[in-house]
Simulated scan of single mutants.
Amino acid sequence: MSLEGAFREQATHNRALGSPFTARVLRIAAERAVPGNPVMDRMLAWEGDIGPHGASLPLRFLSGLQALVLTGACRELVAAYPPNPAPDDATLGAAIDAALADHADTLMRWIDSPPQTNEVRRASVMIAAGQWLADRFGLPLVLSELGAAAGLNLMWDKFCLALACGTFGPKRSTVWLDPDWRGPCPPAAEIEVIDRRGVDLNPMDPHDPDDALRLVSFLWADQPQRIDRTRAAIDLAEAVVDRGDAAAWLEARLAEPHPGALHLVTHTVAWQYFPKATRTRCLAALEAAGARATRKAPLARLSMEADGSGKAGAAISLTVWPGGRTFSLGRVDFHGRWVDWTPP
């Protein structure tokens, strides 16, 4: 895929995900995907899949622009971005040109790392799956997340899922999730998390100003509710995220004994970023640990990932050991705006 094509494809996705402004930014940036600027030159030389299902270079570039707006570093972009009235394409293009010319170093830094949004609304799926598992097994939970970024979604038991059929989680929580929910209500069950930990190649400390900026920069400028919700989740964050390879970390994590608890391993829109060797080792580690699982110390893997089916959103899959049975729990919008919940 060409760089221009990657920008245009991402623009289509952003529009479908309710962000017409960033879709315009990406479309205008696509017109600038030519040699002659160090930022564009670097992206043009990038090897491998650069599109939405690979390195996601357009989203990395978009987050760099957002960082320049949030810090006020590029006055041209600040004037062209929400909450200011949307300018015409020529003015917005000139603002992007100013960012490319005057802030290449910042944009280069943001291109270094894949998106780490910690999209908080995805936690709706974790809450529902947690309720299902707690109802089925009646055990406290140990949580492990692969590609956890800043660990915001490791705190899902501190969020409140508000559905027409009821609420789940603490009602006094400052993080409320109210997706368009289609399907049965999750079962009501007591959730007790006794341990939570994550891993990421480049973990982020949500209480560090620079990392908090990076987290918020991956959110889209015309969706202020996402930014507000993420900042509220940052205030609740207290999970540890280790720096390391997901496979080696998971092997060690699964070797830790947790008698009398269910160990839930999760990953949401992260699997695509893992090298093939890492994915293979993770699957082998899960199978080996699953073979040791018992009814009093079960294991589960919750996956929310693109599946290439052509259907909207990400597939929700849950595998439970002992037994290794995999359940399809439905589909979810990549930003958690809606959930089609189809539990067994």
Rank of each mutant, 00 (worst) to 15 (best):
R279E: 12
P298F: 01
L283P: 07
H263P: 04
L283E: 15
R295I: 02
A289P: 01
A285R: 04
H267I: 05
L262R: 07
G260L: 01
T280R: 15
C282F: 02
A291L: 01
T280K: 15
L299E: 05
L264G: 10
R292N: 09
T266I: 10
T278S: 13
L283D: 15
T280A: 15
A270T: 13
R279L: 05
A291F: 00
G290T: 08
A297Q: 07
G260R: 08
W271A: 10
R281A: 15
L286S: 09
H263Y: 09
C282Q: 04
T294K: 09
T266V: 11
G260M: 03
Y273N: 14
A261C: 14
R279Y: 06
R295W: 03
A288W: 00
A300S: 02
T268F: 04
P259Y: 06
A288N: 10
L286N: 05
A293H: 03
K276W: 04
G290Q: 05
V269P: 09
G290A: 04
K276N: 14
T278Y: 03
P298M: 01
L264E: 01
A300C: 01
P275W: 04
L286G: 08
A289E: 01
A297N: 04
R281M: 07
L264M: 12
A293M: 02
T280N: 15
A300W: 00
R281N: 12
V269M: 13
L299M: 02
L283Q: 15
T278V: 14
P259K: 11
W271M: 07
H267L: 03
A291R: 09
Q272V: 02
W271P: 12
A300F: 00
R292H: 08
W271K: 11
F274N: 10
A289Q: 07
L299I: 08
H267M: 06
T278D: 07
Q272F: 09
T266N: 13
R292L: 10
A261L: 02
A288V: 02
L264N: 09
R279Q: 14
E287L: 06
A288Q: 12
H267Q: 13
A285G: 06
Q272N: 13
L299V: 10
